[in-house]
């Protein structure tokens, strides 16, 4: 009971994930949506590390994968912010509702 087990960590990562989903679907601000995506990514990272530690403690694959994820996330943030800046220059706004011109 005193030990922190795999289940606890999974609860945390699950919570983080759904907070991220909720934020992504409800926020109108593009920066906030980007932050939500970061939350989702980090919940995945936590999962990787946790499974690696509890199931295959003698291996390092999960750790490396989460490091790899962090790198990708950094690149993704850079690209996303570049897009947001361009949108801002165009619409003078970073509200996601104004970027609905690509439709039927």
């Amino acid at each position: 009971m005193n030990n922190i087990g795999l289940t606890h960590i999974l609860f945390i990562s699950c919570g983080l994930f759904f907070i991220g989903i909720y934020g992504f679907l409800t926020r109108r601000n593009l920066i906030t949506m980007l932050m939500s995506i970061e939350l989702i990514l980090n919940s995945v990272n936590i999962n990787f590390v946790a499974f690696n530690k509890f199931l295959w403690a003698d291996k390092l694959d999960g750790l490396f994968f989460s490091l790899f994820n962090i790198t990708i996330a950094a690149a993704e943030a850079a690209v996303a912010i570049a897009i947001i800046i361009n949108l801002y220059r165009h619409y003078k706004s970073i509200d996601v509702e104004v970027t609905d011109t690509m439709k039927f």
Binding site: I21, E97, D100, T101
Partner: peptide, 17 residues
Amino acid sequence: IKRMQSGRVQSYAAYFF
């Protein structure tokens, strides 16, 4: 069904999810 393609990123994400 063409209304589904609304151009709004968040609805797409919701469908996906």
